[in-house]
């Protein structure tokens, strides 16, 4: 069984980027590149299927990893090899149009079709964590003329039959069980598996293995032009302090002022901790301080 896993090296978005407050200059120290976690899970799924012994009767099967991008992508592919992939293909494209999924899917489809080994299963992550498009897998299925199942949360392939049983994650924890004939394209959810951590022998092996470099010319020339264009990107607006409704006791002018300044100071909240007695006393005091408790009856 030949499994192809498409992976992306993402720019990590958690890191505060670029502005060094001391030198007051833009730097690239904050940009960190790493393998997309969803793709890691896809690779893990592929490796597990391989370990189940799902091989074609006529010959070897294996896990092939494909990635598109500049030279730095190699480190992500090395990680995949260290995890246990059999082959890694690097489509060298210094200006990978990662803002548009169509050319990417097109390139991937061309690479996959150019492989003599064929493919029984193509796995992708459900989405990349940096751009969150979640479309490449679907487009790829279209271009390869294969069925596609998205958000795969459980995956079993029977060794004898050529179909897969899957579960898809839906809203609110619902699951949908799907049966799909192979070959097919699956995009996996992050909760499918916990990806393995590379071992020392795995890393040593990965360093020895060659990454196959493919240029655009090898797979039929230039990429198709992008159909999407990102016109602008805005950082998140500073979140206004939450308030359910403006305080009606305030004058209209004050209310207006607060609305324009982005919100009103949040009503002070607190958390009562400690043992049950302390918590009970805390709640009682809270209610008493805010006059929620009935006044003691003076007559009695």
């Amino acid at each position: 069984m030949n499994i192809i896993v498409c992976v992306k090296q993402i720019s990590h978005i958690y890191v505060h980027q670029a502005f060094d407050k001391i030198t007051r200059q833009l730097t690239n120290t904050g940009v960190v590149h790493t393998l997309n976690p969803y793709d890691k899970v896809a690779l893990e799924a592929a490796l597990r299927l391989r370990e189940q012994g799902l091989r074609k009767q006529d010959g070897e099967g294996g896990v092939t990893v494909i990635s598109i991008g500049p030279k730095r992508v190699e480190s992500a592919l090395r990680w995949c090899l260290a995890m246990g992939a059999d082959r890694a293909i690097h489509v060298v494209d210094d200006a990978a149009p990662d803002k548009d999924p169509w050319p990417i899917a097109d390139l991937l489809a061309r690479v996959i079709q150019s492989q003599d080994t064929g493919h029984d299963l193509v796995l992708c992550g459900r989405k990349a964590m940096d751009r969150e498009m979640g479309q490449v897998g679907v487009f790829l299925a279209e271009l390869l003329d294969l069925p596609v199942v998205t958000s795969v949360a459980a995956l079993t392939v029977e060794p004898t039959s050529s179909k897969a049983m899957l579960q898809r994650s839906l809203e609110r924890g619902n699951r949908e069980t799907v049966e799909c004939a192979l070959p097919a394209v699956f995009t996996v959810d992050k909760n499918l598996h916990r990806p393995r951590y590379p071992t020392l022998p795995g890393r040593a092996q990965a360093r020895k293995m060659a990454i196959e470099r493919i240029s655009l010319a090898d797979i039929g020339g230039e990429r198709i032009s992008a159909t999407l264009e990102v016109t602008t990107m805005a950082p998140p607006r500073i979140r206004p302090k939450k308030i359910l409704s403006p305080d009606s006791n305030l004058s209209a002018a004050n209310r207006l002022q607060f609305a324009m300044s982005g919100g009103m100071p949040q009503k002070k909240g607190g958390q009562i901790g400690g043992d049950p007695t302390a918590m009970a006393i805390g709640i009682f005091d809270f209610l008493k301080d805010r006059n929620f408790l009935p006044k003691p009856n003076r007559e009695s």
Binding site: Y14, V15, H16, D20, G30, V32
Partner: peptide, 12 residues
């Protein structure tokens, strides 16, 4: 990824 255990990143 970030070279620190908390994941704050070098820029911080």
């Amino acid at each position: 990824i970030f070279s620190d255990p908390m994941g704050m990143g070098p820029a911080r």
